[in-house]
């Protein structure tokens, strides 16, 4: 290795690397937890959508039933003589 290889001061580098590992432990801990947070939000969104969809379905049915009832009542009230 004649060509300029090798570390200038391995001891300093070693200390810096050690500090780097520790700093990065903190960083990766934070970033992982942020990711978990977002992961949770994604899942939350997905399940909420499902639940809203099923709620919507129920409302839809009620709405349609109501519509039929309205029509039936309407048909009866427009022609009250039938009942007298």
């Amino acid at each position: 290795m004649g060509r300029g290889g090798g570390m200038g001061n391995p001891v300093n580098v070693g200390i810096a690397v050690q500090a780097d590992w520790e700093n990065r432990e903190f960083i990766s801990n934070i970033s992982l937890n942020v990711r978990r947070l977002f992961d949770f939000l994604l899942r939350f969104e997905a399940t909420t959508k499902s639940k809203l969809a099923s709620l919507n379905e129920k409302l839809d049915i009620l709405e349609r039933k109501l519509e039929v009832l309205e029509v039936q009542v309407g048909s009866a009230t427009t022609n009250p003589s039938v009942f007298n």
Binding site: M1, G5, G6, P10, V13, G14, V17, Q18, W21
Partner: peptide, 19 residues
């Protein structure tokens, strides 16, 4: 000597002794 220097460089740049 040359090669062992490379090896110790490898250790220096990645070893995490404190762990």
């Amino acid at each position: 000597k040359d090669l062992s220097r490379i090896l110790s460089d490898m250790r220096t740049l990645s070893a995490d002794w404190m762990a």
